[in-house]
Design a binder for these strands. Structure first.
Length: 365
RNA sequence: GGCGGCGUACCCAAGUGGCUAAGGGAGAGGUCUGCAAAACCUCGAUUCAGCGGUUCGAAUCCGCUCGCCGCCUCCA
């Protein structure tokens, strides 16, 4: 860039710094839609007499006393922040990359400067697509290290399953800011609960019907309609994702599918044809699993995981034995005892559900 | 102050010129159930921050106003 005239050297305490000359790069500001003249007029840009222009940025920075340094043709120093990214991209990904991501707060100056130095050097487009995400905010302020209003993913994962956190973030568009809140996490957890309850119902149905005779005529139209809904779901999910990663819409579609599955089950179809239709629906949901990395567990694994996260000191075996005890009471129509056992479990966070096929448990979210 | 973006129901959120404004949570009523839970059904924005304009037609386009956020400085 020195050879090409885009950069210049400046003597700084025995060593040299190299600055990029912004005015030499005519497209400067194209990403952040900023105008050089307006930037120059801005009072907040400090004047540094060593730079030709206050907007110029360091490609190589001479090290001051006590700062880390490497040897270079300009003496002791270190790379400028922006050049690191351009250098890595050029070395590992090539002159033009397909997608460059980052937080929206990096658009200016960081990404703008990456473009300037990379394109000045290669004379080729640096990135074909820029994908800038919104911030996670706390009390409407961006969460950041420098503001100190942050907590780590590890801390959140002590209280919530990773899928909860993923679902929470996927529930709004990546460019939108997302307000971090306990309520939102609980909502995401409840949504996953809804999913896993539905899968449990499906699995039960499939186990009971996979080898049964073909569906009766009454179920035939229903199954046909259900199959076509599942097919449409796959198309709609992909369309949403193809449209600038519209994850919130894709999730909306997913929960419509879940409602349709429940409706299908509520209509009490019978036979292997219905079981096959549900297996196809599970397969369709596999798309969500692959793309979003949620829905990766079995309902049982999900509940066992919740026992751990919610710090419930009961094993599945403990719960099963309570259920047996209660079922005996129910058989004897001892509703008082049955209700007491159910209540005791609920107080410890375990919810029982009585169904025709038996009683199941899950962790209350 | 400049630039960029946002404002949709009680909460979250999709929708950016034309089918009844997706979906989830919360709430109310109902079906099922020993009672529950879950699931399902019904109800819920005559309206998209406000005002004005363009259009046969606007949450969507334009203008102004209000509110919020980010960047415009070091560091990353």
């Amino acid at each position: 860039m020195l050879d090409k005239g885009f950069a210049y050297e400046v003597e700084e305490g025995g060593n040299k710094s190299v600055y990029f000359s912004v005015e030499k790069f005519s497209k400067y500001g194209k990403l952040s839609k900023k105008d050089i003249n307006e930037l120059l007029a801005g009072a907040r840009v400090d004047i540094d007499e060593r730079k030709n222009s206050p907007l110029d940025f360091a490609l190589w920075k001479a090290s001051k006393e006590g700062e880390p340094w490497w040897n270079s043709p300009w003496g002791k120093g270190r790379p400028g922040w922006h050049i690191e990214c351009s250098a890595m991209a050029l070395r590992l990904l090539g002159e033009s990359i397909d997608i460059h991501g980052g937080g929206a707060d990096l658009i200016f100056p960081h990404h703008e400067n990456e473009i300037a130095q990379s394109e000045a050097f290669t004379n080729k487009p640096f990135a074909r697509y820029w994908v800038h995400n919104g911030f996670i905010t706390i009390d409407k302020e961006k969460m950041s290290k420098s503001l100190g209003n942050f907590f780590t993913i590890r801390e959140v994962l002590e209280r919530y399953d990773a899928e909860v956190l993923r679902l929470f973030m996927l529930s709004s568009h990546y460019r939108s800011p997302i307000e971090f809140s306990e309520d939102q996490l609980k909502e995401a957890e409840a949504s996953l609960e809804r999913y896993y309850s539905t899968v449990a119902r499906m699995d039960e149905f499939i186990a009971l019907n996979a080898t049964k005779e073909l569906a009766s005529q009454k179920d035939f139209d229903l199954i046909k309609w259900f199959n076509s809904f599942v097919d449409r779901f796959k198309e709609r999910f992909e369309e949403a994702m193809d449209d600038d990663f519209n994850t919130a819409l894709a999730l909306g579609n997913t929960f419509e599918l879940i409602r349709e599955i429940n409706r299908f089950l509520d209509s009490k179809p019978e036979g292997q044809r219905a079981a096959t239709a549900l297996m196809k629906a599970k397969e369709a949901i596999g798309l969500v699993k692959e793309v979003f990395n949620i829905f990766t567990k079995t309902p049982y694994q999900w509940n066992v995981e919740l026992l751990k996260i919610k710090k419930i000191s009961l094993t599945p075996e403990d719960i099963e034995s309570k259920i047996s005890e209660r079922n005996l009471a129910r058989k004897n129509k001892d509703w008082t005892l049955a209700d007491r056992i159910r209540k005791e479990l609920l107080e410890r966070g375990i919810l029982l559900e009585d169904k025709r096929e038996g009683t199941t448990w899950k962790v209350k979210v």
